[in-house]
């Protein structure tokens, strides 16, 4: 590999990180919030796909992609709130309900999405952060969607709010020990309901990014499991919003590895290059699992880490 080739691959990975990471970021942040409250919602694949369909449909019907984003958030909010409400009932398993909502959300999206596969809906515009360079490859790599910036800002805000605000304290306490939160007079079911609903909203917005920006169209194969993977990334990111962003960026960059290596002529074993995000994540997890006490980062009430 020459220096020029390396440059192409690196640029593609940076571009890929920016292009591909946003849905992962939104879902992961939403799930992070949910899990911080002590609930797990595995159903974000459903929110993501339904959000993508709703955003596309609304953007097509109204001509306003941002209205589509709002509608996607609304759809995600409803699914999330339903999850949160059902899981407040005694004996109901949140993981199972999440998987049920994955099925329900994708089912609804496919059912109502049939008539929106054909039309072209207006998509979201990008901000050309690299346009001043006059280099088309750099300009392309640095095409940034506003939602990407919103996602990063949100992560910073969540990180700050969880540590420094009363709301953050209540949320963390609910997630770490329901008993002590209850003793403080916190309505834990309400906290979890809100956290799950907001988490669902974020996942829905992640879906809007898929259908309105990148790859920027609606069809049934659009997500190919990104919502489920993003939920898994939260565990990988150890329930830290900033680390969620890094995980999403890493995942996006690794996803760009396969196509960009082929574009410079390295295509032997492309199945494994295409699986790079999964392989990389697994190895990082194995390598780091015992280096710090991973479990201590986990909210104590979380069923999946108990």
């Amino acid at each position: 590999m020459t220096g020029a080739d390396l440059y192409i691959v690196l640029l593609a990975m940076i571009g890929g990180a920016i292009r591909v990471s946003t849905p992962f970021m939104f879902v992961a942040l939403g799930e992070c919030l949910t899990e911080k409250s002590g609930r797990i919602n595995l159903g974000h694949e459903g929110n993501l796909v339904l959000g993508a369909m709703v955003a596309y449909a609304v953007s097509f019907m109204t001509g306003s992609p941002w209205l589509g984003v709002l509608a996607a958030g609304g759809a995600g909010l409803v699914l999330g709130a339903m999850h949160g409400w059902i899981c407040a009932l005694p004996r109901v398993n949140d993981i199972a309900v999440g998987i049920a909502f994955m099925s329900f959300g994708t089912g609804l999206a496919f059912f109502f999405g049939k008539s929106f596969i054909q039309p072209s809906a207006p998509g979201l515009e990008a901000i050309g952060l690299g346009d001043w360079t006059g280099n088309s490859a750099i300009a392309q790599a640095l095409q940034v969607n506003p939602l990407f910036l919103v996602g990063i800002a949100l992560a910073v805000f969540l990180s700050w709010a969880l540590a420094n605000t009363r709301w953050g304290l209540i949320l963390r306490m609910t997630g770490d020990s329901a008993a002590s939160a209850r003793a403080m007079g916190v309505n834990i079911d309400l906290v979890r309901l809100l956290a799950t609903a907001v988490g669902g909203l974020l996942a829905g917005i992640g879906g809007a990014f898929l259908s309105l920006y990148y790859p920027g169209s609606w069809n049934e194969g659009l997500s190919s499991g990104q919502g489920l993977m993003a939920v898994a990334l939260v565990i990988f990111a150890r329930w830290d919003p900033i680390r969620c962003v890094w995980a999403a960026l890493l995942f996006g960059a690794a996803g760009a590895l396969g196509p960009s290596l082929q574009s410079i002529g390295i295509s032997q074993g492309y199945y494994f290059f295409n699986a790079a995000p999964y392989i990389l994540t697994l190895f990082i997890m194995i390598a780091s699992a015992r280096s710090k006490s991973a479990a201590s980062d986990a909210p104590g009430e979380l069923s999946i880490v108990k």
């Binding site: 990334l233 565990i235 994540t281 997890m285 699992a289 880490v305």
Partner: peptide, 10 residues
């Protein structure tokens, strides 16, 4: 200590 849910998915 690797979480089994994510490891099995990956």
């Amino acid at each position: 200590g690797v979480n089994e849910t994510i490891a099995s998915l990956l």
